[in-house]
Amino acid sequence: MRLLTHNMLSSNIKGVANGFPLRIVAEKVIEKPVEMNHDFLKNMFAKLDWKAFVDASRSLGYVELPDEADASMLESSEFLNKFHHALLELHLEEGALVCPETGRKFPVNKGIPNMLLHEDEV
């Protein structure tokens, strides 16, 4: 699971009012280089929840992203490289996503988050 996906997922347990963002418990993180696509990054920047993204990147052990960012920073290639790396090259391979309200853990195995709910959670 990459952080773009993390930015879209939330805990949908019945009764949870705000299941976003999911906290990350990282046991194994891997890096896979991919080609950079500027247009894609600009497009995603406008749609991302930046704070959730930065916190997520830090829980994967990547601390290069600033707390706050605005669109003008996309002109800097240094910023783009870091943004690209955190968004698309870091993979949470083993660990868990944790519901911010209930603390319920959604396990991540082989890079696949298991968001299935138990019977009493729907």
Partner: peptide, 18 residues
């Protein structure tokens, strides 16, 4: 590269207009 998520469609919600 493909992202994979285990989820029941009945409880699927992907935030943002991504």
């Amino acid at each position: 590269e493909i992202e994979l998520v285990q989820c029941d469609v009945k409880h699927l919600d992907l935030r943002g207009q991504v």
